[in-house]
Design a protein around this nucleic acid. Structure first.
Length: 292
DNA sequence: TCCCAGGCTTGGT
DNA sequence: ACCAAGCATGGG
């Protein structure tokens, strides 16, 4: 039984909000460390800190009791419903329980149990996964942090008890990135990806609805991927990641170096993704997490 | 020094 | 349609 408040008192202009879920539904460590998001950090004491939109949030996961897990957040209760939606708690993951899985898939799913596919901001997801190409996760996180410092809006949340302040940055809007310019982007360590991001920031700023249009349920994952791949710097893998993580097209199955290793190692070089149906992306996350 | 990282573009067959 | 090289950057 963990001390629920220990390490979870950095900020106090919040009304602590708690919620409970059955064990196995949400594991925040797996969810935030599985490579789908880059702005959540482990700050100790089973607590993660992150930024969603203009809000700084801490969440702590406690040990299960009687099959239930308690979570504490620093988020005002009025936002709890939105936060649960962000965490993907409303998504039905039962489909994978009803299909035949290989021994490897059962092992991967078991290890990854509790991973949720987050409902992240579309623009942030587009930029993040353009940065991710030919890059490793620690450096992606560093680059994105530098980008937020350079072009995002600086925010502060204050602890009136001990007087300390926590500074954080919103993820820069398309316009903020355009204003930063290509050279400003390159100073964030983005390398050749800087011009890709600059170009798509111009497009997104001019016509955001062109992008949000694919949030519609009538747009398939493949249609979304085809649209995204028309932009310079977005190929099949990045497009699949944006469709899966930014548009929540849960049937998409991004193939990166780790997944192709799994395909070589456990599928004799040939995987049938159709078996996973509408939750192929979730199985992809289990496999990715297993391989890492 | 070389190798690798949640790949993509370009230019050759 | 497929293949190889080049690409910026930073960590091991």
């Amino acid at each position: 039984m963990c001390n629920k408040l220990e390490g979870f008192n950095l900020i106090s202009n919040w009304k602590p909000t708690t919620f409970t879920l059955p064990e196995g539904i949400l594991d925040i460590k797996k969810t935030f460390d599985c490579g789908q998001c880059f702005r959540w950090n482990n700050i100790g004491n089973y607590t993660y800190a992150g930024v969603i939109g203009d809000k700084y949030i801490q969440i702590k996961q406690c040990e299960a009791e009687n099959g239930l897990v308690e979570y504490m957040t620093t988020l005002d209760p009025v936002y709890l419903k939105d936060f649960l939606n962000y965490l993907g708690i409303n998504d039905d993951y039962s489909y994978l329980e009803h299909i035949n899985l290989t021994n490897f898939e059962v092992k991967a799913m078991d290890k990854g149990r509790g991973i949720r596919i987050l409902h992240q901001d579309l623009w942030e997801t587009i930029v993040s996964f353009i940065i991710s190409q030919r890059n490793n996760i620690p450096k992606i996180k560093t680059s994105i942090h530098r980008l937020c410092e350079a072009a995002g809006t600086k925010m502060v949340t204050k602890n009136p008890v001990i007087g300390s302040e926590i500074y954080y940055y919103t993820f820069p809007t398309p316009k903020q990135i355009v204003n930063l310019g290509i050279t400003g982007l390159q100073k964030c360590g983005l390398g050749y990806r800087a011009e890709y991001i600059y170009t798509i920031a111009l497009e997104f700023d001019i016509n955001p609805l062109r992008f949000y249009d694919y949030n519609n349920k009538s747009k398939s994952g493949q249609e979304t991927v085809d649209f995204l791949m028309r932009f310079r710097g977005i190929g099949p893998k990045v497009a699949n990641c944006i469709a899966l993580f930014g548009y929540n097209k849960l049937d998409m199955f991004p193939i990166d170096i780790w997944i192709s290793r799994a395909i070589d190692q456990y599928y004799n070089g040939d995987i049938d993704i159709e078996r996973f149906g509408k939750l192929a992306g979730l199985m992809q996350q289990y496999i990715f997490y297993y391989m890492k």
